[in-house]
Amino acid sequence: MSSVLYDLPGPRARLRNRILGVVSIAAIGALVAFIIYKFNETGQFEARKWEQFQYASVQRELLTGLWATLKAAGLATVLALLFGAVFASARLSDRWILRTPATFVVELFRAIPLLILIFFGYYVPLQYGWSIDKLWALVIGLTLYNGSVLAEIFRAGINAVPYGQTEGAYAIGLRKNQVLRLILLPQAFRSMLPAIVSQLVVLLKDTALGFIITYPELLFVGKQIGGRLPFGLPYVPTYLIVAAIYISICGLLSILAWWLQKRMGRMPKTAGRVVPTQEVDAGRTAV
């Protein structure tokens, strides 16, 4: 393998790499062994801490938490996509009266920490005596933040379509609406899809912030299960299981995003460059 940093290894480099490989495997192995030793020493493997999970009632608890997480994520996804579409089109508008406020809103919400947005959703309506469910406080926060990020992704996707496409469309007499609908969107959609999916992974992960306003999502349920004194406070096993659930779901979505990016990048029909996902531009789309 030749990369920027290394040529194809010759005999000496191969030997050196092999030695490094053995050393690093040993180091990683030692690290893993140490963790397992620590787990064992502090009794994390004892039956009492794991027994709960064999029971249907505890599994149901976890599933209820997972369902609450997915419900919040699902609602927020739909609303954030709508929010993003509306604000992206406002930012792409020719009229400054639409463009300026939309730019302000999108930039503002991207600069506010998500937790503070969720606090806004939770505390402020209550201060004025409106009833608001914690689910909706969470969904509002997630929508405002991720909607703003999605608006930027949409805008970048549309802007990435070469200008010749627009010119050509106008030349054959299409109206503005038609240019957007028939020419720009279908091409932009392909290039944005991976970035959209990665942003949805971020959104799904961020539902865990519901933990802080005690919305009973997966992490919160994990705390309830882990906090049971009679089972020896099984926080370690519980959080490991919760982490495995998050990693499986987000991992599958991430792989989908990566696969889409690879596929879209290959397709000749994707005129524009593919909008970068987390992979390339971590912070832009990360949490």
Partner: peptide, 21 residues
């Protein structure tokens, strides 16, 4: 990257002390 940051926090504050750290 596929773990929520809140879970990383929770693990450090509630689970890691159980490992005598």
């Amino acid at each position: 990257r596929n773990t929520p940051l809140t879970l990383v926090f929770a693990f450090l504050v509630f689970a890691v002390p159980k490992l005598d750290v």
